[in-house]
Write a protein that binds this DNA or RNA. Structure first.
Lengths: 158, 158
DNA sequence: TATTGTTATACTCTATAACTATA
DNA sequence: TATAGTTATAGAGTATAACAATA
């Protein structure tokens, strides 16, 4: 009888990514990319991208916000927000009022149409979330959220 | 005595993002962005980006892989891999041998230098991971990984 | 015909410098 | 002088079309 040949797992299983799967960061990235792809589809019927939806929700939740404040909240640079607000404004979803007391700044508010679209889109996002987290218990979800918060905190305190 | 005024939480706390924090996807994205920023720093001493590190690890773990196979493994398009392999090849970290039996394809292998750099970089990435997951118990980490796998699976089965 | 690696190209997201008008 | 919004621009990352060589 011949000695067992030394065969790597790849011989049968094909190329593998398990060398990277020891890293939580890798698993997190793959999960995020999968979520993102699904979320883009969920928002498409409303003609919203992730970044425009995010801006809409934050303006709705923080009426009177300036663009600089919104940019800080979204962790993006002020210049990159200009086109986003311009798009939401052109579509009549967000109003750019001049801030009382500072003629440089805008005071951002959602319009009635913006509020309505935001509500519809949020329903769709909630449905997308429910589908993606199906099979994750409430207890496990709490652990997940706590772990994500801990990781984010550890990373951000440099 | 005056009636209590209706004040939103923002009056005292400033702009808030909690309208988005009900979504696991949002928390996951923020955690990933924080990890990513830290990971970029961890890989900088080795002059590796995430994408070049990933390619290096996968070639090391799957010797003889073709570029098309590697692109599929990395979930990216073949054209975008060309410059990455070119860079790794120019730096002497990866060899592009012609595949025996198919003169169109390359058989990718890491060089000794590539293996050494990969090992060093992996140590740094492991240290970065240990720092970011500090305070997450082994049990919670298993829950985290299972939840991420479930979410990814739910998303990818479309 | 189909596939491998490649080129060219375009689109999104993001980051920086510099301008204007205010403060 | 500093800040708000803006413009222009550049760099990643990613996606598609099309080509030559090979299957």
């Amino acid at each position: 009888m011949a000695a067992p040949s030394r065969r790597s797992p790849e011989d049968d299983a094909g190329p593998s990514e398990h060398g990277l799967e020891v890293f939580v960061g890798y698993r997190l990235r793959r999960a995020w990319l999968a979520i993102q792809a699904d979320l883009v589809v969920a928002l498409r019927p409303f003609d919203l991208r992730m970044v425009t939806y995010t801006a809409l929700v934050l303006v709705k939740d923080n009426p009177g916000l300036s663009q600089a404040q919104l940019a800080a909240l979204m962790d993006m640079e002020r210049p990159n927000l200009v086109a986003i607000i311009e798009e939401l404004s052109t579509r009549g979803l967000v109003r750019r009022d001049r801030a009382s007391g500072d003629r440089r700044a805008y005071a951002l508010h959602v319009t009635a149409a913006g509020e309505a679209l935001c509500q519809q889109a949020t329903q769709a996002v909630a449905a997308h979330e429910a589908r993606l987290t199906a099979g994750v218990s409430d207890a496990d979800r709490r652990v997940l959220e706590a772990a994500l918060a801990r990781i984010r905190h550890n990373a951000e305190r440099g």
